[in-house]
């Protein structure tokens, strides 16, 4: 744990080696989130690179008191991906897309270049209830606020927090975390 805090401090001091370690820890997750939004592996690769360049250039603006480093990256990634979906190119190419939820991406995942985790995770998302799938998608992949998620899912605002706790709990118990 202290390890990660030190890496982040070094990254903020523009230490390339430290940044490489952080990159290796999170690049796939960041790419996964972007891919869930833009649904195109090539575009995802481009945006992922932009996100990590942006994080490097804005290293000084990160502060641990504002949230987790991973969460900070997630935010940059979602914003970059959503910006892309507003572009003209994206609207034209979108018509051919069929997948919608991260679950669909996992289900259609090509096992050849997938991480070993993906195979196990496929089973996980089968086991998660429909509400959990939607809730996790909105809160973690899309960055919805509690209010936005409650409106989208037609769920009372007060239950979002506890329901999400149960959903993440299910995910953790299957992963053994």
């Amino acid at each position: 744990m202290i390890n990660q805090e030190l890496l982040i401090l070094q990254f903020q001091q523009k230490d390339v080696q430290a940044y490489e370690k952080l990159y290796n820890a999170y690049c796939k997750s960041i790419a996964g989130v972007i891919n869930t939004i833009v649904k195109n592996p090539e575009v995802t690769e481009e945006i992922t690179q932009d996100v990590f360049l942006k994080a490097w250039n804005n290293a000084a603006s990160y502060s641990p008191s504002k949230g987790r480093f991973f969460t900070w990256l997630l935010n940059i990634a979602r914003n970059a991906a959503i910006d892309h979906t507003r572009s003209k190119n994206f609207k034209q190419s979108k018509q051919n897309q069929t997948t919608d939820f991260f679950v669909d991406i996992l289900e259609t995942h090509d096992d050849l270049n997938s991480s070993t985790n993906a195979i196990g995770l496929k089973d996980i998302v089968y086991k998660l209830g429909e509400t959990c799938k939607s809730l996790i998608e909105l809160l973690y992949f899309r960055g919805f606020t509690q209010v936005e998620a409650s409106e989208e899912l037609n769920m009372p605002l007060g239950t979002i927090k506890t329901k999400n706790k149960i959903c993440v709990g299910q995910l953790r118990s299957i992963l053994g975390l």
Binding site: V16, C27, G32, L53, N113, Y140
Partner: peptide, 26 residues
Amino acid sequence: IAIEKAIVLLTAATNQGDSYSFDAIK
């Protein structure tokens, strides 16, 4: 840390690209 780890694993599994190399960014 445990919650974050679960989310890191789940989100990583939705990545369809080839393995990402740091070189281009470096």
